[in-house]
Design a protein around this nucleic acid. Structure first.
Lengths: 238, 238
DNA sequence: ACTGTTTAAATTGTATGCAATCTTGATGTC
DNA sequence: GACATCAAGATTGCATACAATTTAAACAGT
């Protein structure tokens, strides 16, 4: 719990609503895997870290619970989510429904400047891909997710964007947990290919490729059927 | 604000978490239109109504804000959402992406008992359809939404189920706001037809019909391009 | 040693108090 | 009369205090 940067990137948000800033910071820590699944997030500790009262810390934890990044048990507290394989499957099943639709909307609305931003983002992704070390790996997972979030933002549907926010965050957690090879390098080239198809206005192919892309991400996971559920549960780090 | 039943249907939930019970009660009041869009929900008032402190009331309002049923402005408070036509369109666009997928999953998992429960639910829907008066109308909207929620529950994806929970609730609000004829009677027969196709295992046709069904619901709305935005905003009941 | 019980510490759930902000209505000026 | 200014009231944002619950640790009995 000592490795949280204060993350004062946008002080505005912090001033406007501190619990939102704390949520952001914890969110990043969770999807970056600096906070391991199962880690307890006590209200007092979070509050002390960010120098706020338990009230504010609690509000942040409640938001994270809503997003599925944190699980809270009554009278026991909040813990970083430890998604089961079944939950992982549901996350990707949800993405398979939503993302093709996002592509379709994005094709209609994307501008030249958007595409330029996307290419820049993909270059950054590539940069992390060529670096070694756990920090670069985490940054790569993050950047890879950002591609999908940018698409959602271009699609212009605030509701879907929020859904994708949640799904991408939970996907990052799942990839960190069950990822076999790390972000598959083919994933990155698929991002490029998807962007190309969008630029050409070929919504159908872009959507199809997106489906394949999601399949590839999920196929890279090791979602083996776990041993006896009760046992597994008992052994799970709380 | 005086027309809220205490709604002690499931005391268990109330005992286990009071803010959840309050959320449920407010949620029902909002989608039933007993609480009109724009109505202010002050923490003190909500707390007094349910006999809890502002802390608990606040938590319930935060949850509703996350669901999009309530909008909160900093230092001003919480208000029942007054979705703009554009928001309504985004809600239905989201449903068009998700619900066909839910149908596909439901076809694979539905049991004979499920189908029996569905038929019973549809009969109840029919009952309200034949009654007159605003109360029956509200009950009809609710029952109509419940059909979609039951489908989501059968589909067996907890994440999609939560998304649908939100989308159906917000749809009810939108229908109450912009509905032209009330729930179109064709909507009900479409529910029957969808269920029949699911029972036959015809996922493709069932999904197609669901898309048409959503189109019909949206077509029944009066999402006219509003006059001058600033003016409209100024005249809107706060 | 092992197990069950009791007790103390820690943590969450809730209520409440105070400061900051917004709203409203009164007052004064033009 | 219209408009700006300002003060009183109300409401939210946040911190803190206390009660309820859980966790752990000490202890006693077998």
């Amino acid at each position: 719990m000592t490795l949280l940067e204060t993350n004062s990137s946008t002080i505005d948000a912090a001033v406007e609503d501190r619990s939102l800033a704390i949520r952001e910071s914890l969110r990043n820590a969770i999807i970056d895997r600096r906070l391991a699944p199962g880690t307890k997030l006590s209200e007092a500790e979070v509050g002390a870290l960010f120098d706020v009262s338990r009230t504010v810390a609690r509000a942040a934890l409640q938001m994270l619970t809503f997003e599925g990044l944190v699980k809270t048990e009554r009278n026991r507290g909040a813990f970083v989510s430890n998604p089961a394989p079944e939950e992982a499957r549901q996350i990707f099943a949800s993405r398979r429904l939503i993302e093709p639709g996002i592509i379709a909307a994005a094709v209609d609305r994307i501008t030249a400047e958007d595409i330029a931003r996307f290419r820049e983002q993909l270059l950054e992704e590539e940069r992390y891909m060529n670096e070694r070390g756990p920090a670069a790996r985490r940054a790569e997972i993050k950047a890879s997710g950002d591609f999908h979030l940018m698409l959602a933002s271009v699609a212009g549907n605030a509701i879907l964007q929020r859904f994708m926010d949640e799904l991408v965050a939970r996907s990052s957690l799942v990839i960190a947990l069950y990822g076999r090879t790390g972000v598959s390098s083919c994933g990155h080239s698929e991002h490029f290919a998807i962007l190309d198809l969008i630029e050409k206005g070929d919504a159908k192919r872009a959507a199809d490729l997106m489906l394949h892309h999601i399949d590839h991400i999920e196929a890279d996971l090791d979602l083996a059927p776990k041993q006896g559920v009760g046992l597994k549960d008992a052994l799970a780090v709380r």
